[in-house]
């Protein structure tokens, strides 16, 4: 019968939007902040796990981690890849790259927008091609 839920579904069906507890609204969600090296600061709001970073001017005179990032990003890399390569937590990579951006050592690209039809079409074609 098409009007019958499969076994067990009827009692377990997902609650509809208007049937939710106030706590589900998202308004009370905890905001993530990043700690590194004893410093606490908000993550650079423009940097996400997929932000792509590239080194601008080589890596002379940099400290250990930043030199590692500068070397790694001679070819463009995302924050996620940087964190994995340096074996540091994501939040640490965000703070290090934020510093390097402020110091003009690296550049970052803006993320893609879902409203960019041409870009979505390129993604579809690109996935087909792999």
């Amino acid at each position: 019968m098409s009007d019958k839920y499969p076994d067990g579904y009827a009692t377990q069906g997902r609650r509809s939007e208007d049937n939710k507890s106030p706590d589900d609204s998202g308004a009370g969600l905890l905001r993530p902040y990043i700690i590194t090296g004893g410093r606490t600061e908000a993550a650079n709001s423009d940097l996400s796990i997929e932000s792509v970073i590239q080194t601008k001017d080589g890596f002379a005179g940099l400290g250990f981690e930043k030199r590692a990032i500068a070397k790694h990003c001679a070819e463009p890399k995302s924050i996620g890849e940087i964190a994995a390569h340096l074996k540091v937590p994501l939040g640490v990579a965000v703070v290090l790259v934020s510093d390097m951006l402020a110091e003009g050592l690296v550049i970052a690209h803006k993320r893609a927008s879902a409203n960019d039809t041409g870009l979505i079409e390129r993604l579809i074609e690109g996935i087909r091609a792999i």
């Binding site: 009370g28 905890l30 905001r31 993530p32 902040y33 990043i34 700690i35 606490t40 796990i49 996620g80 890849e81 964190a83 994995a84 540091v88 937590p89 994501l90 939040g91 640490v92 792999i130």
Partner: peptide
Amino acid sequence: TISEITPVRTEANMTAASIGH
């Protein structure tokens, strides 16, 4: 299945501070 690189297993180490609460 989709990734061209071996999926990176990145650690996220974050502290959720409840600003405004």
